[in-house]
Design a protein around this nucleic acid. Sequence first.
RNA 1: GGGACUGUGGGGUAGCUUGGUCCAUCCUUCGGGGUUCGGGACUCCGAGACGCCAGUUCAAAUCUGGCCAGUCCCA
Length: 523
Amino acid sequence: MLAVMLNSMGGREAVGRAAGRRLPSVGQARRPPRAYRYTPGPSLPHPPMAELPDKRTQFIDWYLAVVEEAGLSDKRYGVKGMNVWTPYGFRARRNLDSVMVREIEATGSQAVEFPALIPETEFAKEKEHIQGFDSEVYWVTKGGSSPLDVNLVLRPTSETAMYPVFALWVRSHQDLPLNVYQIVNTFRYETKTTRPFLRVREIHFFEEHTCQVDEAAATARVASNLAAFARMAEAFALPFLAVRRPDWDKFAGAYYSIALDIPLGGGRTLQIGSVHHYRENFSGPYGIRYEAVDGSSRLVQQTTFGLSERLLGAILAVHGDRKGAVFPRAVAPFEVVVIPVPSSSAGDLPQRTAGEVAERLARHGLRVHLDAGPERPGAKYYHWELLGVPLRLEVGAREAAARTVTAVTRLGLKSSLPMDGLEEQVVAALAGFDRALAERALAEFRSAFALATSLDELRDSAVVRQLGWCGREECGHRIEEAVDGGLLGVPEGKPPVEAPLPGTCIVCGRTDGVRWALAGRPL
RNA sequence: GGGACUGUGGGGUAGCUUGGUCCAUCCUUCGGGGUUCGGGACUCCGAGACGCCAGUUCAAAUCUGGCCAGUCCCA
C-alpha cells in the first residue's frame, strides 16, 4: 500500500500538518479558512469572505475548491493523477472502506491480497481484456539496470493476477463458490484530465472476484452484489441506478456489465462502480476448471464487483453544498464536533463542560472532536461546516446553566439537547440528519431524469434522458451522438421515471424489443 | 496521440511586452505577544517565493533552449 498514514508528527494531537502545507487541523488551533477566490484577478484590499463557486453553474470548480479547502486530498504531489491522502481525507476513506468490507463480508466474501505486478504473459491471455487495457497500463521493464526477461504490468485491475492462482485453488465443486475481494491500489495511465477521487492514475480499488458453479449461480452472485451495493449506498445516503451497459461499452472481457451510476445534475452522470458477469471468458483462457458431482470437468462461471474512491467523490458531489462538504454519518471523519463558547463571565466553565461532553460521546463510541482552539466560535462554525461534520454541539454559559447543549446539524436543524441521556439524544440527532440528507439527495435524484420522445429533446439536455430503445447498436450510436454523451444502457429493475413501457424506439420507431434506456453525459 | 497556453512564499497574485527601479507587490497563511470571544475579531512583532538545468549578457523573475509539472482544446 502506498497510502501512508501520517502519524507521530509531534506536538499534542498535531495531526493537522503535513509536508509544509496547512491542513485542516484536528487537534490544534484553527483559523478561518483562507478566502477562496475562483476568478483570477488582482487581489482586493479586503478579500471577500470564503466563498465557494456555485455548485450548479460551476460544478467542477466548486468540487475542486471543496476538496482543497476541506483538505481532503493534496494534489501537489508531482505525478499526474497521484494525490496524497491527507489525515482528514484518509479518515473518510477508512470509514468508506469499512462500510464496503462490512457489506461484502456479510455476503460471505473473504479478503485476500494479490501482488501488484503481473507478468506480461499472463496479462495477455484474454484478448479483449488486454485490448481494453493495453493503452493505459504502466510497464515495469527493468530490474535495476537490467532489462527483464518478462515485462511486468502494474495491475490496472487484478483479473490476470488472480486467475492463474484461482486455477490452482479450484479443483472440485466443493471449492465453489469462491468469493474473494481485495482493497488495493491499481494503476491506470489515464490520459484525460485527472480529478481528485473522480479520475486518478493510482486508484484505491475495491474488487471482488468470484467463481461460481454454473451460470445461474453467477447470475445470483451479480444480484447479491447489487443488493450489497444497495446497502452500502444506503449508508452513504446515495441514490443510484444499476444500468446494464450496451455491448459496445461493457468491461473488456465481460459477458455483460452492470454499471452503478449516479446523476450529477445538468444531465451529467458519474459511474461509481460496476458488477460484471464474465461467464467463461476468463476461466477458459486461465483454465479454471472443477470436477462436478457427476465427475465431469467444467469451467467455472465468474463475476466481479468493483468500487473505488470515486464513491467518496460521489458523496462529496451529491451531498456538498454552498458551505462545503456534507458527510453522511457513515463516512464522516468526525460525526460530532464540540465547540465551547467562552464568555468573560463564565471563566473556564464552557471549556470544561465541552471537554466532558466530548469525552462522554467518545466513550459512547462516537467519532467526536473537541475544538478547543483560540478562534472565535463563529470561525469554528464555518470551518467545520466546510469540512462536512454532521453534527455540531455548542456549549456555553447558557447551556451549562440549563444543563443542555445546543445541537446544529450540517443541514441547519437546531435543537437543544438535555445533558441527561445526551449520548442517546446525539445518536438520534445523527440518525435524523442521515434521514434528512437521504431525503434531500433523493429529491435531487428524482429531478435529474426526464422522458424524451424525440432525438431533438436529447440535444443540450439538462437532465438524464429516459427513452425507448430497440437495442440495436446503430440506434444506440445515434442516441449517443444526439446527447453528446453516452447511452448508459437499460436500467435493472424499475427505471427512474415511472412510466408504462415505451411503444417505439426513439430512433427507428420499431416496436419490437423496445425497452427503457438512459442517456446522459458521463463526467 | 496532435495542438495551444501556463509555472513567482503554504494558497492566490503584481512585476515579464521594452533585462537594471526587485536583497520582488498586495491579500491570505504561518510563528510569537496582547486585547478579545453566542456566526468568519483586532493589534504589535516576526517568517516565507521567481519549477529545474543550461545559455545569452556587465546585468535575468523578465530573453533563448532542453527537461519537469499543470491547464485547456482536438482525436
